[in-house]
Amino acid sequence: MSEQIILSARGLDFYYGPAQALRSIHLDIPAKKVTALIGPSGCGKSTFLRCLNRMNDLIPGARAEGSLTFHGEEIYQKGRDVAALRRRIGMVFQKPNLFPMSIYDNVAYGPRLHGIRSRSALDETVERSLRAAAIWEEVANRLKRPALGLSGGQQQRLCIARALAVEPEVLLMDEATSALDPISTGRIETLLGTLKDRYTIVLVTHNMRQAARVSSRTAFFLNGEVVERGPTERLFSMPRDRRTEAYLTGCLG
């Protein structure tokens, strides 16, 4: 089974000031698959995720060493256009973070930013993104209403629609369902199933069953290192590392 590698870490170290958060990470992310990053709190999985679109840049004193590439180009290369990178690698956060604007303006924000002005093109992008995020039916008749009036689950799907509207190649999801009820979580997991044919998805989750349900590859992080990685099914049924097994059976973390 040949798969194209879109994101690749080789000996990636990451520091918050003097504290080292990632130690020599080696990890390949295959294109158009769902990759799950699991591990206990503080293990570095979110830090790794935020390296991929350089959201860690916002934290003073944060710095990366080693190699991390996107389509073979160094993400942390000097002079890299970070805004352009983030346009190609979208992100959905733990808590829905919609703008205090209308539903329509939230989704249209990205496209407008990147130069789409025509009303019809915007309308089309907004509808396509809302459909792709499986929320069109629920909001079609109230696009001009404030986005913050939606339920938590709807807000999170709207966040996904907003991310999709700029047509990224990769979608990073940082515990995107951890603040949601089981029904909303189920909806988003179903949605991921439909998105994985078109997008590369990297998912950080505390929910092991979620990782097992939606991902095809899994990496287990512990204390800033990747302890084990592999096809999800194999990693969950026959973990090779004792620590992975301990975590999966609930004896660790």
Partner: peptide, 10 residues
């Protein structure tokens, strides 16, 4: 969080 969302959209 608002600004983070905006940065993440490029």
């Amino acid at each position: 969080a608002y600004e983070e969302a905006s940065f993440a959209l490029g």
